[in-house]
Nucleic acid binder design. Structure first.
Lengths: 226, 226
DNA sequence: AGGCTCCTTGACGCGTTCTTGATGGCAGCA
DNA sequence: TGCTGCCATCAAGAACGCGTCAAGGAGCCT
């Protein structure tokens, strides 16, 4: 039941150092030596933390970061030879949790790994499944059913639905929904919510034009009831 | 409604730089120049993030870190002149979320502040729910009930009700209500208050023409009692 | 390159909410 | 009694928010 760390790095000596030291601390270590392999590994292995080198052979490191972030909230520690401050800023703003410059002390790196793992452990508990007369939702498996039949929801739809379900029964303000789904820089794009509320209703509500579950509270926000 | 950052640092030029840059980004900035003051400030000001210098005059920085951690999960970014790796390891293991070594680029620091704030979108303390013989109010969920049945309130009605409930039992002047609900530019539009007080009474009072909860204090303001 | 899904963005009609003015009641006062 | 604040109530136009649709564009898979 140990924790799984994905190392994305193409420099063999560094890989070796990391593998030895991380294994010695009791982590399970997986290696990906290209951006493409990293993305595949994130889906298959579901790591608890990612150590990501930005200088990859195929895809730009920041691009990898962006794509991983799109599908997971796993802690990402960026690892790079460049000491350029702009890179740091860009990586952190794209969703990296930490940034270490090579050459790095292995003790510092391990400490940062611990600090970031600690945070993700105290992360919010997973949402329990939902069953209503008309649909079922499984947030852990990302599966939705309506009248027993599978329904496909997009990533953004899941995020919005999660935030609604997390506080179900209460009215959630536009700003809170926008920040939870699109990020902290958002808050005034209420029309996004309209589009996605509309889509969720069409996929889940028995009569989308007279919503029974996803309720609009004009001027304030939305409320999910069941 | 902006986010509050506590800077714990005794070097005046650095304090100055941080204050200017953080304010320019729209954060509220509080300063503590000693460990003792920092601990007090954490309790009183409830910051959303702490920038902590380890080299403090009175208490050892790591000890401050430990004590803050004992009472709060607020993100802490450690800021230090020592480049000693052991310090980093110790600080991160004691619960720091991030570590920046002086001299630092202000852009990098701001990016790390953003990255750490992103994780802890803490909302302002909500008003506690209200229960009376005739109605119930839940300000966190934005839900109102009268005789057990849901009642719809408009955004302006909620804002007015919140301000009244925040100071319930006391008479609140017209100007204060108007500024709290409509904004600081208002204060003379007592008309608005009459209209909305009327609507709240019709929605909540058992006998709207003889109010029992929302009391008019002629020439002064309104008072909400329960 | 092509098709596909998904996200973003703008436009329009409609219903709700806000603002504003008018009317009338009530109390205090000369 | 008439006058003067202050308040409650009502109603109507203006402003705003929402649902809906569709087009454009970016990313991904084959």
């Amino acid at each position: 039941m140990s924790q799984r760390i994905l190392v994305v790095e193409d420099d063999a000596p560094i890989v070796r150092t990391l593998r030895i030291n991380l294994r010695a601390r009791g982590y399970e270590v997986d290696i990906a030596t290209s951006g493409r392999a990293a993305l595949a590994a994130v889906d298959e292995l579901v790591p608890d933390l990612i150590l990501l080198d930005l200088g990859l052979p195929d895809i730009d490191g920041v691009e990898v970061l962006r794509r991983v972030r799109r599908r997971s909230d796993v802690p990402i520690v960026v690892l790079t030879a460049r000491s350029d401050a702009d890179d740091k800023v860009e990586a952190l703003d794209e969703g990296a949790d930490d940034y270490v410059t090579k050459p790095f002390g292995i003790d510092e790196l391990l400490a940062r790994v611990r600090a970031n793992l600690r945070r993700s452990l105290s992360a919010p508990a997973p949402l329990p499944p939902v069953h209503t007369d008309d649909f079922d939702l499984d947030f852990a498996a990302l599966q939705a059913r309506r009248d027993g039949r599978p329904v496909r929801l997009t990533p953004t739809e899941w995020k919005l639905l999660s935030e609604l379900a997390r506080h179900h029964g209460t009215v959630i303000p536009h700003t809170q929904l926008l920040q939870a789904v699109w990020g902290p820089a958002y808050g005034r794009e209420a029309n996004y919510l309209r589009v996605y509320a509309n889509q969720l209703r069409r996929k889940l509500e028995p009569d989308p034009s007279h919503p029974r579950y996803l309720i609009t509270e004009a001027g304030m926000g939305y409320c999910l009831r069941w």
